[in-house]
Structure formats: structure tokens, C-alpha cells
Amino acid sequence: MGLTLTWLSVIILIPLAGLFLKTFDLSLEQFWGIVTSRRTLNALKISFGLSFAAACVNLVMGTIVVWALVRYRFPGRRLFDAIVDIPFALPTAVAGVALTQLFAQKGWLGAPLAELGIKVAFTPIGIFIAMIFIGIPFVVRTVQPVLLDLDVEIEEAAASLGANRWHTVFRVILPSLIPALLTGFALAFARAVGEYGSVIFIAGNLPNVSEIAPLLIVIRLSEFRYADATAIAVVMLVASFLIIFAVNRLQRWAQTRLPAH
């Protein structure tokens, strides 16, 4: 036990504490000034806003994918089940160059979209796409086991009580998936907020328009403005801590709610 805490502190706590200590170089007003400056606010807004939107897409599409994978039999199902994890296993830099290549104006998907007047690469849409990509596995993988475990008898019971399929799905099945859905959503969201490698290639990196917060940290570093970089980092760190903390609480709550486990 003591060993765990020591080791955790060496690997995680000390580095993070260093980050917080560094921000103490700043007065509160300075810190506030940096965090609320237009550029920072916009970068945070872009990172959090687009991540939220991407996580929403992943919530919906992830649920559809899970449903198809768990409930239906179709050719190639096992293969599709396996490839869900690609965004997780594929290095972010590789994902970045690949997505950019794909969605650039000359790319396989970029060209037809450009015909329609939709520009993806180097716009906020590009960031959005990259964030969807990296978030896919999270909703699918958190919901999948729960849906698999779900007792079919509940559905039968609902049906025998006169519920139609629509009602069964939305009143009976979905509610019991909610903790898992929320967890997957939060994980996808947290991952997208911090994502750097796959996004910077495809983002236009225009200040206030398509500049994500992690990039702003890197920019501040290369301007020798460590305090600014750490201030933004602290805000993001606290946010991810809160998200993950909420997820873990959620899971414990879900466990106690379903004592059968």
C-alpha cells in the first residue's frame, strides 16, 4: 500500500505538483489574466466545444455501432468489432497525417466534399473529425459489455407487459445503459480535449478560429512564456481530473445500483 502511493507520487504526483508549483510564480491576477485572455478563452472554447460535439457524435454513433455489433449478425461483424480499437492503437501522429491526406482538398474524401463546398482540412470541421476519430473506441467499449450482460428476460418481461419494441428499447434498455453511456461519453470527451498529435496536422491553427488549447501551450512554450503555458495546462489538467473523477464516481455508483454484479 505504501509502496503504491510512493510509486504513484514519483511517477504522477511529483510531475503534476511541479506544474502547480510553477503557476505559483504568477499572482492570482496574472493567472486570471492569462486564462481569461481572448486567445486562451477561444482556444479553450474550441478544445472543449468541439470535443463536446465530437463526444456527442460518438455517443450516438457509438451506440448504433454497439447495437449492431452486439445484437445483429452480419457478415464481417467480428472484423468490424476488432477495428473499433484502431483509433486507440494507431499512433496519433499517424492518424493525423492520414486524416489530413484523406480530407485535404485533393484527398479521397476532401475532393468530393470540396465539390459540395465543404472544406474540412484546416478548418474547425477538421478538428471535429479528428476528435471523432480518436473518441470512437470509448463509447463502444464501455457500453458493449453492459449491453452483452443485459438480461434478455427484461425485454421479454417488458414485451409481455404490453410494451412495444420502441418502448422496450427506450424505456427499458437505454436507461440501464445510461451509466455506461455517460462513462464512454466522458472518456471520449476527456481524450478529445487533450488530443494533440492527430489534431495539429488537420487543424488550420488560426488563432481564435482553429487553434486548440494544447497547441496554444506549445506556442507559448516556444515564445519562452512558461508561465502562460503552465497556466493553460493547469486549467486543462483540473478539467480532465474532474471529468475522470466524475467517471469513476459514476462507475462506483453504477456498481452499487446494480448489486447483482
Binding site: 485535404a104 485533393k106 484546416f122 491553427n205
Partner: peptide
């Protein structure tokens, strides 16, 4: 597009046709 480096901009212009 504001790339972070000169080379990035060249790639954007030359290779990606922006």
C-alpha cells in the same frame, strides 16, 4: 491556415493545394 513552421506552410501550399 497558420502553420507553426515555415516547412509546414510549404507542405500546406504545395502538397495539399491550399
Amino acid at each position: 491556415v497558420l502553420d507553426t513552421g515555415a516547412r509546414g506552410s510549404t507542405v500546406t501550399f504545395v502538397e495539399r493545394g491550399v
